[in-house]
Design a binder for these strands. Sequence first.
DNA 1: GTGCTATACTTACACGTGTAAGTAATTTGT
DNA 2: ACAAATTACTTACACGTGTAAGTATAGCAC
Lengths: 340, 340
Amino acid sequence: MKRPTQADVARLAGVSRATVSYVINGRADRSVSITEETRQRVLWAIEQLGYQPHAAAQSLRSGMTKIIGLLIPDMHNPHYWQIVRGVEDAARAEGYDLLLASTSLDPKREQHSVRALLRRRIDGLILLLTFGDRLASEIEMLARRHGPVVLLGGQVPGLDVVEPGYESGAAQMMRYLLSLGHRRIAFIHGVACPTLGGERLTVYRRVLQERGWLNERWVIHCGSTLEDGYQAASHLLDCSPRPTAILVVNDLLAIGALRAVADRGLRVPEDISIAGFDDIEVAAYLTPPLTTVRVDSETLGRESVRLVLARMRDPERPLQHIRVSAQLIVRASTGSAPAD
Amino acid sequence: MKRPTQADVARLAGVSRATVSYVINGRADRSVSITEETRQRVLWAIEQLGYQPHAAAQSLRSGMTKIIGLLIPDMHNPHYWQIVRGVEDAARAEGYDLLLASTSLDPKREQHSVRALLRRRIDGLILLLTFGDRLASEIEMLARRHGPVVLLGGQVPGLDVVEPGYESGAAQMMRYLLSLGHRRIAFIHGVACPTLGGERLTVYRRVLQERGWLNERWVIHCGSTLEDGYQAASHLLDCSPRPTAILVVNDLLAIGALRAVADRGLRVPEDISIAGFDDIEVAAYLTPPLTTVRVDSETLGRESVRLVLARMRDPERPLQHIRVSAQLIVRASTGSAPAD
DNA sequence: GTGCTATACTTACACGTGTAAGTAATTTGT
DNA sequence: ACAAATTACTTACACGTGTAAGTATAGCAC
């Protein structure tokens, strides 16, 4: 009933256990050689017993786990899932498995999760931190240990970073909205933690400030669920004068905003324009299709894996900072500002 | 630069390595006792060195990995994420980490992933299989070993199963659509593999057959992406006569269908009714909000974990088959059949 | 003082693997 | 013909941990 080990295989094949190990790991360097005949016999025994190597023993011996850990803020936002997909794809292509943890927007849990991932002595870690600031000490430890840790957005000195180009994306978006004649542009900043999505808000403020059109009443902070987006938009729609456009920090919340507009009997984009960030997959299929800023999230995931693996292979290589570019995607949810 | 081990802690505390181990695992049974003073000294040394147990070594010794593996068909469908959320929540609450793999709708990859999960000698496995039939031998091996494996939908003799109650849900849905006067009801069966979502299709066929209204031309098989849903619906809308209602195998594809209807300038539900399954989170926020069948996916995940853990604790307990009930959720995407 | 028990440890083994170093038989070089 | 090299293995150790079994000291009863 117990799983067979190399020893069992060796016994059945009539060779020593080492031979089995050599056969399995097919020594390419010529230091050890094995007859084709015994090789076949060993392979036959493996097949016969259904032997599979014990991963924990391999890890203990080799120091590698063949696991990449990924921490994401929450599992509700499709944007994060697309990142997960990129990571899983790239990881599996290189023979790594994926250990996934989510913060669930709880700082305690984020800390707990990071620790759990560390204890596993996972080969590489990709962190998309929500409350990074509270983990300063832990993160610094990581940096000092020079373990392969990649940050996905955010900055910690001493760690590789993959940064989504939201800043340029936000700038493109603002330029576009202004070109449509919008002046009363609101911003829904619905995130788990104020620092998240901060660049988008900053660009928004700067651009409007330059023109003297910034009105802090139109910046709404809220949570990160669909319902939060709905509520925030509802609040904005009740303002007078109403904003002519609402820029939402991510597409998920923008969906909530679209619903709020529809529930008030207003039309998008004739009465009000709505735009988001991320270009999650449903964005193109909404009614109306959502104008947004695409940051290829799968690429974000892929690049993170690439950096982690590269760091594993050469711990001394210079720090990398990769920026994944953003692109404005214009769809039907935005249009010219209505005449007052 | 290397991580400290128990041996380092022992040296620093001036005790034997075994003592350190006993302190850490705080022997509750009185077989071994340790002075409070040395206990403190050991704890101090642990703190001092920042010692953390080596998970692989613990696994090797104890035979437990403290990891639960989860295999899902693909990462595009929010429904599966909700299951993942339930699993991750429940697992973490019990001190388990989550190893996630996705099939990506590729049978080869499903097989590969299942093997990878097995090799890790993971404590428990939760499988949501797509191409289960091709894995018959592997699965049977699982069953024979009586490892803690839970199937999420599907049936393999000898394994615990958590089954979503789509069957009763589909029946409710059909009754509801018929009560609205619909006779020309189409079905979009967009899944990676014909067996997936089979119960829903079966119920659909049976109900219509009973009334002699079944028309196989209105059963469309397609892939599992939003675009597939869009295309399938487009095709149906070009039929003449047009169906008055489209039942879609899941909400994700239903979103594509909604878009297709809107693109043709038709109205939902005045011209055509659309309904889905799963009640993914966005369903309530779509335009119009989507009528669907809710199967609490987080509960699916949670229950799976519960079964896995129970099976771990008692491998001999009788097989469990849990059915998570489904519930019709009526929203605005369905209405009375238009008069011809 | 002797025998017995309780306390507070330590010694020693096992988990399953990868690989360096050793060995015996065969082949090659001159 | 004999040293040297190559082939085809095997023996032996290390990875870090959990725990059973052993040991040494002290306390106590008689």
